[in-house]
Amino acid sequence: MDRNTIFGGNPFGVILRLALISIVVGVVMKALGIDLKNFFQRINELLRNLYDLGFGAIEWVIEYMLLGALVVVPIWLIARLVGAVRSKAE
């Protein structure tokens, strides 16, 4: 393996691109109020919010599923009973 294969191109060019992208991302993060001091605190808050959001979404789905089941299950049960009575009559 040569250096171009390992780095994905000219090593100097790759390092230069990574440095420029790192500067741009650093500026954006600083504009969002994220710095080296609170980076891990922000990551922790992000993970906690995603965790809470996930369970909030599950609660939302269950609530609507139960509400719909109040109508769907009785109709399904009546349809099954009518179908069973018709098949016995034939």
Rank of each mutant, 00 (worst) to 15 (best):
A57R: 02
E59T: 13
E45W: 03
N10C: 08
G83V: 12
G54T: 05
L53Q: 07
A84Y: 07
A79P: 06
I58Y: 00
W76F: 06
L20C: 07
I75R: 09
V28Y: 02
R86V: 15
N10Y: 03
R48M: 11
Y51M: 08
E90G: 13
M29N: 12
D52V: 09
R86S: 10
R3W: 02
I34M: 04
M65Y: 03
A19E: 09
N38G: 05
E90P: 01
A69K: 07
D35T: 15
A57S: 04
V27R: 06
V72L: 14
V73D: 01
V27Q: 06
G54F: 03
V72N: 02
I23S: 07
D52Y: 08
S22A: 15
V73F: 06
K88Q: 15
L47D: 08
L50E: 04
A79W: 07
A57M: 04
L66R: 12
N44K: 14
F39E: 08
L50P: 03
N38P: 09
Q41M: 05
L16M: 12
F55H: 10
M65T: 14
K30M: 09
Y64F: 04
V24S: 07
M1W: 09
F7E: 06
V71C: 02
W60M: 10
I15D: 03
G83Y: 02
D2W: 04
L18D: 14
V24E: 11
F12T: 13
L66P: 04
L47G: 11
G33K: 02
A31G: 12
N10Q: 13
S22M: 11
S22E: 08
L70F: 03
G56V: 04
A84E: 13
A79V: 14
P11C: 03
D52P: 01
L32T: 07
A69P: 05
R86F: 06
L16A: 13
G9I: 10
L47Q: 09
Y64D: 05
L46A: 09
I62G: 01
I75P: 06
M29K: 15
R86M: 13
N49S: 10
E63F: 09
I6N: 00
G9E: 08
G83C: 07
V28L: 15
L50V: 11
L16I: 11
A84N: 13
E59D: 07
I21T: 14
K88C: 07
G33M: 04
G68K: 08
N49P: 01
L16P: 01
V72G: 03
G83F: 02
G33I: 09
V27A: 14
L70C: 05
I78G: 00
L46I: 08
V28G: 03
L50A: 08
K37Q: 12
Q41P: 01
G26K: 10
P11W: 02
